[in-house]
Computed example of a mutant assay.
Amino acid sequence: MTDLLAKAHPAGARTAHERAAGPDTAGEGRADGAAPAARGTRRRLGPGRALPFGRLIGPVLLVAVWWAASASGHLDPRILSSPATVLSTAADLLSTGRLQDNVLISLQRAGLGLFFGVTAGVVLAVAAGLSRSGEYLLDGPLQIKRAIPSLAMLPLLILWLGIGEQMKVTVIALGVAVNMYINTYASLTGIDSRYVELAEGLDLGRAQFIRKVVVPGSLPGFFVGLRLGVTSSWLGLIVVEQINATSGIGYMMFQAQQYAQSDVIIVGLVAYGIFGFASDAAVRAIERKVLSWRRTLAG
């Protein structure tokens, strides 16, 4: 959107850029070359420089505390198995192929639900955000749906769709679609109206308006919704895989509960956690790449 401002008001765009550069650069453009008055060491107010793989510090510390508590005997193995036991159990499940089979099925369910949910949420957000008639028709029902958890609709969905894969994917997709719609719609309707007026003044076509104004303006909200949608897909997966399922990580955990196999349950939880953390990190990486023009506290 900054290229539209530069095209219409080059001087104004440069002024905005200079203002964004901060107060320290303002003194450099003075005619007398005088520097700002010294105030001593400048206080750093931001979160500091980002560390590579810094988000792994928290999970590693959590595992270290868990390991130390188990090794020192402060953690009853009947309540929570030790990391060594969990690793041994995971190795046994991998050797028999049981873990891989269940993981693949869970990934397929979560992937399908995420795909359909993202697609539906974005389409609905665009229809409601760019059209008054679409807003009047769609926003009300979707706001009502937001107040109704997808899991509360399970009895009705089971009556409609049965207990097969279609019901499981639908539950996941509903949770994802609501998150995508809310955040993308909020980002679309939050675009400054001056950009719309500027696009009209430049006589942009509908396609150019969407490409130069709508897409850049909605991408931040889209990625927030995508991160929440990825999380929703895993949360929905955990639930639907424990409802008359015959495969998946949740089914494996439910079966382990019947035999008090806490180590197998923890293997399933760790698998969910790894996939959730990895998928969120992947979305973050894509967001940083796509929105590289932004300068935020996240770095």
Rank of each mutant, 00 (worst) to 15 (best):
M1G: 06
T2K: 10
D3Y: 03
K7Y: 06
G12V: 12
G12D: 08
A13M: 12
A13N: 12
H17L: 15
H17I: 11
E18R: 15
G22L: 07
D24G: 10
G29K: 14
D32R: 02
A35M: 03
A37Q: 01
R39Q: 10
R39I: 07
G40S: 08
G40I: 11
R42Y: 03
R43N: 02
R49L: 13
R55P: 07
I57A: 15
G58M: 12
V63S: 02
A64E: 00
A64M: 09
W66Y: 09
A68L: 12
A71N: 02
G73T: 10
H74Y: 12
D76R: 08
D76K: 03
P77E: 08
R78T: 13
S81N: 12
P83T: 02
P83M: 05
V86H: 05
T89F: 05
G97R: 08
R98I: 07
D101A: 15
D101C: 01
I105C: 01
S106M: 01
L107Y: 02
R109A: 02
L112Q: 13
L112E: 14
L114M: 09
T119A: 14
A120D: 09
A120Y: 04
V123Y: 00
L124Y: 06
G129P: 03
S131G: 06
L138N: 03
D139N: 15
D139L: 09
L142D: 07
Q143H: 11
L151R: 00
L151G: 02
P155G: 05
L156I: 10
G162Q: 05
V169N: 07
I172G: 07
I172S: 05
N183M: 08
G190E: 13
I191V: 15
S193L: 14
R194E: 15
A199G: 13
E200Q: 14
E200T: 03
G205T: 14
F209P: 01
F209D: 03
R211F: 06
K212M: 06
K212A: 09
V213G: 03
G217Y: 09
P220N: 09
R227F: 05
W234C: 07
V239R: 04
N244S: 15
I249G: 00
Y251L: 00
Q255H: 01
Q261R: 15
D263I: 00
L269T: 02
V270H: 02
G273L: 07
G273Q: 04
D280Y: 06
D280V: 09
A282P: 10
A282C: 11
R284I: 14
E287T: 06
L291I: 13
L291V: 10
S292G: 08
R295Y: 05
